[in-house]
Amino acid sequence: MKKIEIAGRPIGNEYEPYIIAEMSANHNGNIETAFRIIEEAKKAGADAVKIQTYTPDTITLNSDLPDFQIKGGLWDGKTLYELYEWAHTPWEWHKPMFEHARKLGITMFSSPFDTTAVDLLEDLNAPAYKIASFEAIDLPLIRYVAGTGKPMIISTGMADAEEIEEAIAAAREGGCKELAILHCVSGYPAPAEDYNLRTIPDMMERFGLVTGLSDHTLDNTTAIASLVLGASLIEKHFTLDRNGGGPDDSFSLEPADLAALCRDSKTAWKALGKVDYGRKSSEQGNVQFRRSLYFVKDLKAGDFVVEDAIRSVRPGYGVAPKEFDKLVGLQLREDVNANTPVRMDLLKRRTKP
């Protein structure tokens, strides 16, 4: 699959990288902050803003038993229910958020975490769906999303090759025609050395899908590097302020960082170009500064060229230096002055006695 389209925007290696700003929980419970995140993503040049659609009751159970306790990391000491109560995007916000995005001209879609979330997003005419890494093994959910007929992106953090194949098969079985996958490390944040970006071209060959990166590192280096290896889309968490104190703020990009990602990813993609050994337009003016052969002595018509009569020097208006040995011993057709370029029309071959 060479490309997919989301809201009319083609995504694939032949197109500029598709940049997704993941809002996640970075609205921190304030819809005005959510609106500002959408606005800043648009200003930065992102192609899309992604949100997450769940409630604590649709994603976990309200229990403080050991299975539901978070130990270590950013959210140490909370139960899963407490985390998702804190982090979720209220469902009544979805419609005004989608309307705000449409008004600004930026695409918005979401990660649904159960079938009721899909139904809500369908009512809002979401143009695509993202399956989060933790849900990549929820094959019934993938089939349900596929049944919408919309493009789908599956994040593969924690999934092995067999599980990725199963997720892809479920999407196909459900009727998904436009499918992309994201290489991902589900650490928050994730160290760059965990990313093993050489996996991306292997995924492209193994699964034959548009492939991208869900990047949880703290800067843009890993994301830009992924483009060189074939990534067509990049997802990064996005916030107004890394010090905002929300669940995901600390490992998210701020507006200036997102703008840099949007700018630099396009530059990197353009730099990849194609296989081309020809002279480039930016080089044309510098051809004159290459080396060539020049006469370094005054010579008369009928003289023979000897080795110390010509030299390889800059600029490049004379015969190429590779012709040096062939020119030695040739006879001049006319007088030449020192410091003038060697031209083949000035020379004739030595005639045998």
Rank of each mutant, 00 (worst) to 15 (best):
21 A>H: 09
21 A>N: 08
21 A>E: 04
21 A>S: 07
22 E>I: 00
22 E>T: 01
22 E>P: 06
22 E>N: 05
23 M>K: 08
24 S>W: 15
25 A>H: 10
26 N>T: 13
27 H>R: 07
27 H>Q: 14
28 N>C: 13
28 N>M: 12
28 N>D: 10
29 G>M: 15
29 G>Q: 12
29 G>S: 13
29 G>R: 14
32 E>W: 04
32 E>Q: 07
33 T>E: 13
34 A>H: 03
35 F>M: 07
35 F>S: 08
36 R>G: 11
36 R>W: 03
37 I>S: 04
38 I>K: 02
38 I>S: 00
38 I>H: 01
38 I>A: 03
39 E>F: 02
40 E>R: 14
40 E>C: 13
40 E>G: 14
40 E>W: 13
41 A>M: 10
42 K>V: 02
42 K>E: 05
43 K>Y: 01
43 K>H: 04
44 A>F: 03
45 G>L: 12
45 G>H: 15
45 G>T: 14
45 G>N: 11
47 D>C: 09
47 D>M: 08
48 A>I: 06
48 A>E: 06
49 V>P: 01
49 V>F: 08
50 K>V: 00
51 I>H: 02
51 I>E: 00
51 I>F: 07
52 Q>G: 01
52 Q>M: 05
52 Q>P: 01
52 Q>Y: 04
53 T>K: 04
53 T>Y: 02
53 T>L: 06
55 T>F: 06
55 T>M: 07
56 P>V: 04
56 P>I: 05
58 T>K: 09
58 T>S: 09
60 T>E: 13
61 L>V: 15
62 N>V: 01
62 N>Y: 13
63 S>A: 03
63 S>M: 08
64 D>S: 04
65 L>N: 00
65 L>F: 03
66 P>D: 06
66 P>E: 03
67 D>S: 08
68 F>R: 02
69 Q>L: 09
70 I>D: 13
70 I>T: 13
71 K>G: 12
72 G>W: 06
